[in-house]
């Protein structure tokens, strides 16, 4: 299978700030590919280059063999884009927005309705409502419908789940999986590590650099050291105490517990003994599997 998206050495600046620094990657046809990383990492700039909206300072990108700079006209027909900020017409109704997007791509709502049916049917009862007056979850569904109505080959979604509650987010990811199964290639970004697991492959991106690209499973496996979760009712006290123990090589709070790695020769018993010596009793330490965020933290420190 040839590459569906291929970027070579993309570099882009905004003034003196470097947004993307020599970024190269390939994405295969029909992949659900995620860019995972914090705000300001370069995700949006990259998506704007892929969607032909900005021209990179250096390097090139090709999608389905079309160059994003020279062949942007052909390419735009193939792409559905949902920007991070709600960008539909607030003073048009739900239905008018959808019709508008279908029309500018020379299509009709009816032609590709099957593709958006699952999503659009949920907001259809409100089709006469102005888009600006929809709730966050409904805006998100409308934006996705508009990005899909011309039946694009590639769907690019910039942080589609930011600010959306957990139930709607779970439903949104289910929808993306169905669209991928319909044959659409999907590129999505998110600052949330837990959403990485829902992608076929992910790229960890930070400060304009790609730290790693792989399946979520292989990213987790890159974490080569043994990882433990230490928990105690007083998390803060535990964390401070762990920092003072010489055989601890890293200690990061992770929700209810503190994830720790040890120096080579140390064991959990050493940690327990040191904690007890410092008057911290009742700590529980378990061996755990690293997650994507553990790997991200490790890569960031290199």
């Amino acid at each position: 299978m040839g590459s569906f998206i291929e970027t070579k050495n993309i570099t882009h600046h905004f003034g003196s700030t470097i947004a993307l620094d020599d970024v190269s990657f390939t994405i295969g046809e029909n992949e659900l590919f995620g860019f995972i990383g914090p705000d300001g990492g370069g995700k949006t700039t990259l998506f704007r280059i892929l969607t032909t909206l900005i021209i990179p300072d250096k390097g090139s990108a090709a999608i389905m063999g079309y160059d994003t700079v020279k062949e942007f006209r052909e390419l735009r027909k193939e792409i559905g884009y949902m920007p991070g900020r709600f960008s539909l017409y607030q003073d048009l109704t739900v239905e008018e927005n959808l019709k508008f997007y279908a029309t500018i791509f020379g299509s009709t709502i009816e032609e590709n309705y099957y593709l958006i049916k699952d999503i659009y049917s949920q907001i259809e009862p409100f089709r006469k409502r102005l888009a600006g007056r929809l709730s966050g979850g409904m805006k998100q569904k409308l934006a996705l419908s508009c990005a899909l109505i011309h039946k694009p080959s590639l769907l690019i979604l910039d942080e589609p789940t930011t600010g959306v509650d957990a139930v709607s987010r779970a439903e949104f990811w289910e929808m993306l999986h169905r669209l991928r199964d319909e044959g659409i290639t999907i590129v999505v970004s998110t600052p949330y590590m837990d959403e990485a697991l829902r992608c076929d492959r992910i790229a960890l991106i930070q400060n304009g650099h790609i730290l790693d690209i792989n399946t979520p499973e292989n990213i987790r496996k890159r974490f080569t050291r043994r990882l433990y979760a230490a928990s105690h009712p007083d998390k803060y006290k535990l964390l401070l105490a762990l920092r003072d123990i010489s055989c601890i090589s890293s200690a990061f709070p992770f929700g209810e517990s503190v994830h720790i790695t040890l120096t080579d020769e140390a064991s959990c018993d050493d940690v327990m003994n040191s904690l007890c010596a410092n008057g911290i009793m009742g700590t529980v330490i378990n061996d755990i599997e690293p997650g994507v965020e553990d790997t991200f933290l490790e890569l960031m420190q290199k």
Binding site: G37, P38, P191, Q206, Y236, P253, E293, L297, M300, Q301
Partner: peptide
């Protein structure tokens, strides 16, 4: 929301 994993942990430490 949206901050990198290291900053986020420093932030939670500030909260604690």
């Amino acid at each position: 929301s949206g901050v990198d994993p290291i900053t986020r942990r420093q932030f939670w430490e500030m909260i604690y």
